[in-house]
Computed example of a mutant assay.
Amino acid sequence: MMQQERCGWAMNDTVEQGYHDEEWGVPSRDEYYLFEMLNLEGAQAGLSWRLILNKRAAYKNAFHQFDPNKCAVMTDEELEHIRETAEIVKNKLKIGGVRKNAIAFLKVQAEFGSFANYIWGYSNGEPIINHWTDMAQMPAQNELSQQISKDLKKRGFTFVGPVIIYSYLQAIGMIDDHVITCPFHTENREKLT
């Protein structure tokens, strides 16, 4: 039997390992989580995911635990205060993007009943389980992430390019990109339960 080992990107850091083992590739329909991950993936643009994970608590604290209702009504002064004081990435556009995304997120919720209904509708409610043998096979984006990215931009979201959205789909478990030898691949998880 082949020895099972975590995906290579989550081998060196306990924060990344925890995220990899407990969240990455695990289907979520929780509205707060969906909103949080959308914004954290956007914050990560051009930076490392480890950096964002290490600042995650500060992000949650600054942005009302990623409650879209509260984020949608944040004032310019509040956003500037966050930029000056919070232990997060200081990019003004990314910080303002949380409010912009919250407004768009609430509109999607109103139209579809929930953001989960909207986003999971792209995969008919089912996770897409890939069977990579090596992380090098994993794409940075695909047709689905391009399609969703285009629609999110039309709906007023920001920091939602196709590469960011591909990472987002992995984060919310709509795409399982664990390598097949990883004990946290969907099919291996199922054997453990």
Rank of each mutant, 00 (worst) to 15 (best):
Q3H: 06
Q4T: 11
E5D: 01
C7G: 10
G8M: 02
A10Y: 07
N12D: 12
D13L: 06
V15G: 08
V15A: 11
E16Q: 12
E16R: 06
E16P: 00
G18H: 14
G18K: 08
G18W: 04
Y19Q: 13
H20W: 07
H20P: 15
E22C: 10
E22V: 13
E22Q: 15
E23W: 00
G25T: 12
G25R: 08
Y32A: 14
Y32H: 12
M37W: 02
L38E: 01
N39S: 05
L40H: 02
L40A: 10
L40R: 10
E41P: 00
E41S: 02
G42D: 04
A43P: 00
A45N: 09
W49M: 05
W49K: 09
R50P: 03
R50N: 10
R50I: 14
N54S: 01
K55P: 12
K55T: 15
R56S: 06
A57R: 07
K60E: 08
K60Q: 09
D67W: 01
N69A: 06
C71R: 02
A72Y: 02
M74I: 01
D76T: 11
E78F: 01
E78T: 08
E78Q: 09
L79N: 08
I82T: 11
I82Q: 08
I82V: 13
T85F: 01
A86Q: 09
A86R: 05
I88G: 12
I88Y: 03
I88T: 13
V89I: 14
K90R: 15
N91P: 03
N91Q: 05
N91W: 03
N91C: 03
I95S: 03
I95L: 08
G97K: 01
V98W: 00
R99D: 05
R99N: 06
A102Y: 01
F105H: 07
L106D: 09
A110M: 10
A110L: 10
E111R: 05
E111I: 03
E111N: 14
G113F: 02
G113M: 10
G113E: 11
G113H: 07
S114F: 06
F115Y: 14
A116E: 06
A116S: 15
N117H: 10
Y118G: 12
Y118W: 15
I119C: 09
W120H: 02
G121I: 09
S123G: 04
P127A: 01
N130F: 13
H131M: 06
H131T: 10
H131K: 13
T133Q: 13
M135V: 07
Q137L: 00
Q137G: 03
Q137K: 04
M138C: 15
N142L: 00
E143A: 11
L144A: 13
S145I: 06
Q146H: 08
Q147N: 13
I148A: 09
K150Y: 12
K150S: 14
D151R: 11
K153Q: 15
K154D: 15
K154Q: 10
K154Y: 04
F157C: 04
F157E: 05
T158K: 06
V160K: 01
V163T: 15
V163H: 13
V163R: 08
I165P: 02
I165V: 10
Y166V: 05
Y166E: 08
Y168E: 03
A171M: 04
G173I: 01
G173L: 09
G173K: 10
D176Q: 09
D176H: 13
H178A: 14
F184H: 15
H185K: 15
H185T: 11
E187N: 14
E190I: 14
K191M: 14
K191Q: 15
T193H: 04
